[in-house]
């Protein structure tokens, strides 16, 4: 862990908090992609499988628990309590291709040929693209509530801050995983496009709206 990854993790927590806050206050999940959140849930489950037998520190242990629990809770809310407000007709991204593509990449080049190694690699690739159903949904509706835009920006910061973290690790000659770096860059680029629109709209006090 470094200052950058610590801040990145905090941005991730902030993103989850913002999303839950929005869902709780508005009693609605309109504009939120269930598909993206199911993918994120799969990301955390496959990555943190070793949660109970590989203890590193209280920090990592509790963050992992928080990510798995909060993501399960978000999916639960969309599927149960807030189901009537879920825009199913807008959430039509074909996530099967993402799952298939990530599975193939993980099988071809896992960090280690073991169940854990393959699942971990799968989770890294899947995380990099898991937001696509959400961005696709945004593209279809053309605008987002400001708070959804805040959520996406916080998620952009999260992986974006890992990039200086990896550079720092390289600088102090610590091991860096190439897969994480590649996937992390893809992930940040996907959000960055969105962040540019965010800067032009939300930061100028306007409603988040994609250019026509």
């Amino acid at each position: 862990m470094s200052l950058f990854s610590g801040l990145g993790d905090l941005a991730h927590l902030a993103a989850i908090f913002l999303l839950l806050q929005k869902m709780r206050k508005s009693r609605s999940c309109s504009g939120i992609s269930l598909k993206s959140h199911l993918l994120f849930l799969l990301v955390y489950i496959t990555r943190y499988l070793n949660l109970f037998w590989s203890f590193k520190s209280l920090y990592f242990f509790s963050m992992r628990i928080i990510f798995i629990c909060s993501e399960s809770y978000i999916c639960y809310l969309i599927l149960q309590n807030l189901r009537p407000t879920y825009d199913k007709r807008l959430d039509t991204f074909r996530s099967g291709y993402l799952l298939g593509g990530c599975a193939i990449l993980a099988l071809i080049y896992p960090i280690k040929y073991s169940v854990f190694g393959i699942l971990w690699t799968f989770s890294i690739w899947l995380e990099s693209v898991a937001i696509l159903p959400q961005l696709f949904m945004l593209q279809r509706s053309g605008e987002a509530e400001t708070i959804t835009a805040h959520y996406l920006l916080a998620m952009c910061l999260y992986r974006g801050l890992y990039i200086p973290h990896w550079i720092y690790r390289l600088a102090i000659r610590q091991h860096v995983m190439l897969v994480s770096v590649f996937a992390g860059i893809i992930q940040t680029v996907l959000y960055a496009d969105f962040a540019i629109v965010y800067r032009r709209t939300v930061l100028q006090g306007k409603k988040f709206r994609l250019p026509a």
Binding site: D9, H12, K56, I111, Q174, M177
Partner: peptide, 10 residues
Amino acid sequence: DTIQSIKDEL
């Protein structure tokens, strides 16, 4: 090693 550095990140 590889698996060790996985544990350093979320």
